[in-house]
Design a protein around this nucleic acid. Sequence first.
DNA 1: CATTAACTTTACAAGGTGTGAAGTTCCTGT
DNA 2: ACAGGAACTTCACACCTTGTAAAGTTAATG
Lengths: 209, 209
Amino acid sequence: MMPSVARIGTPQNQRSRDTRAAMLDAAWELLERAGDSEVTMAAVAEAAGVSRQAVYLHFPSRGQLFMAVMDHVDEALDLHSSLRPVWEAADSLTALDAFADHIARYHSRLIGVVRAVDRSRHGDDDAAALWARSTELWYGGCRSVTDALAAEGHLADPWTPTTAADLMWALMSIEFVDDLTGERSWTPDELATRLRVLFRRTLCNATED
Amino acid sequence: MMPSVARIGTPQNQRSRDTRAAMLDAAWELLERAGDSEVTMAAVAEAAGVSRQAVYLHFPSRGQLFMAVMDHVDEALDLHSSLRPVWEAADSLTALDAFADHIARYHSRLIGVVRAVDRSRHGDDDAAALWARSTELWYGGCRSVTDALAAEGHLADPWTPTTAADLMWALMSIEFVDDLTGERSWTPDELATRLRVLFRRTLCNATED
DNA sequence: CATTAACTTTACAAGGTGTGAAGTTCCTGT
DNA sequence: ACAGGAACTTCACACCTTGTAAAGTTAATG
């Protein structure tokens, strides 16, 4: 007989799979609507229509819940298809534009979740690990684009593939996107257009096509 | 006889002024060194060499303590002198460069404090008010620069004084500065140089002086 | 129809914020 | 010199959060 702790996160019958999804949806909805300090385990449980303890049957801690929400959201929003135009771009300048679009349109929908993971990353080692993994992934995307830019001779003067990737990575941070789409009320489309301008002018040699 | 609550924040004799400063310094030091969730009232008290309750004699809440630290830091770091080159610049392009320097050199020293105020801004109405005031001030600085750029005909095509100020304001956010100086290990000087490049190329017509 | 996973309810420990009140120390003014 | 009071300490408490524990209930499954 397995100890009950081994079941956490992997319940076996149908009933629980629904409940787990309900919890993730509830947490997601709460995170996008309220500040993450208001998204307590009790609030998530109530929004999902279960008891507070039931949440702990699926997620060992608050931080791990948020991590699961992040995976859930990546799947629900189809991260892979949002990035496809970047990888399938014919040339690096097109990839750069596609990356600006990805940041503006995808990241503006992750604000609550990513912020929650960020804030629970101190003290929760698993959340810290997920954060590191995400950061690496995101930075890797930037780096691919800047490497391509450099290879095609588009990278302008003071920049190296590394420093250019650093900048792009900082510009895809949640706070940056949230400041502009939230506080300054830019629409995702406006953000996309202006990020394209920023990337092309700041990082690339003047070709203006 | 005044009720004792009216004394909070304005003690009257010498002994307490020293203690208050010690608390502010202790909180500042802790905030720059540790994550803000570790900076508890007890930790601040211990670092300042007083009891936890003594902190409440000077600051009614954790949020208000952080607000006071922010004022304290602005004074200690001489905010006004850091901004002087911006206001005294002969032309708007020089002001823009000076603003990039200010962001890189000044904001990189505010990271812990500003983040703490940001995070205690939900639930603490006073912290929210201070945040709004700071935001307005910072945005006002950006707007002055972009207005000057527009007046002198330097503002490039898609930008208006408003949207350019929005962007500059987002680029002076703590997270952006922290991502680059912390995670990506840019020095403040490197950040200053690269922000100048970004601002000049993204926002200004090509004059390249 | 017995088993068992999933869920509920209740209880609790630990640690944070903020309030309250009594006691101590030391400055200050008369 | 000494009374008053401001600043601080200590102890105690209410309330909220996370996370653990255990016993009871429901319902799917074999």
